[in-house]
Design a protein around this nucleic acid. Structure first.
Length: 155
DNA sequence: GCCAACGTTGGC
DNA sequence: GCCAACGTTGGC
């Protein structure tokens, strides 16, 4: 089983929105970056766990945990010109973009801020705090996962 | 709002 | 295939 970090802007889709969904499950659309897509396509599996990360906001932070609810499948929002992430080049017969379903697991009482992550020397190797950290889906090492869960006080 | 660090596009 | 121009991300 693998661990991930997935970014979402709280102004667009906060963790509470995922929790409020039917069966606390929703599709994770709008990934329009090949590297992130390849992570989903090649490495992400049903049952993997992912941090829900609030990005591009006043206090960027890991705010909770979700579970990957199914393997990657075509992102249908790419086919709809009314959608924000419409991509005319994604052919329904040969979809360019993929998405997965995610299920809410837990919201941290104490979010683990980017600031506090940066302050942890042990987490200095995390992709989140290194260059090339703009990917909206990042792999997380098991040690890093446990460290952050502990920082959240969730053991 | 600024800007660094990318990724993508398209002319050549 | 190169690379300049442009667009996006996301912390600050």
């Amino acid at each position: 089983m693998a661990y991930w970090l997935m970014k979402s802007e709280p102004d667009v889709y906060p963790i509470d929105h995922l929790r409020s969904q039917k069966r606390k499950t929703d599709y994770w659309d709008g990934i329009r970056n090949y590297q992130a897509r390849n992570f989903m396509r090649d490495q992400m599996r049903k049952g993997d766990l992912a941090f829900f990360y609030h990005s591009n906001c006043a206090e960027p932070a890991v705010v909770g945990i979700m579970e990957i609810a199914c393997a990657a499948y075509p992102d249908h929002t790419a086919f709809n010109s009314n959608e924000k992430y419409f991509d005319a080049k994604s052919d329904p017969d040969n979809p360019r973009w993929l998405m997965v379903d995610v299920r809410f697991k837990k919201k941290f009482k104490n979010p683990v801020t980017l600031q506090s992550i940066k302050a942890q020397k042990k987490l200095g190797d995390m992709r989140l705090v290194q260059r090339g950290n703009r990917l909206s889906i990042l792999p997380v090492a098991a040690l890093e996962w446990r460290h952050i869960v502990k920082m959240a006080g969730e053991s």
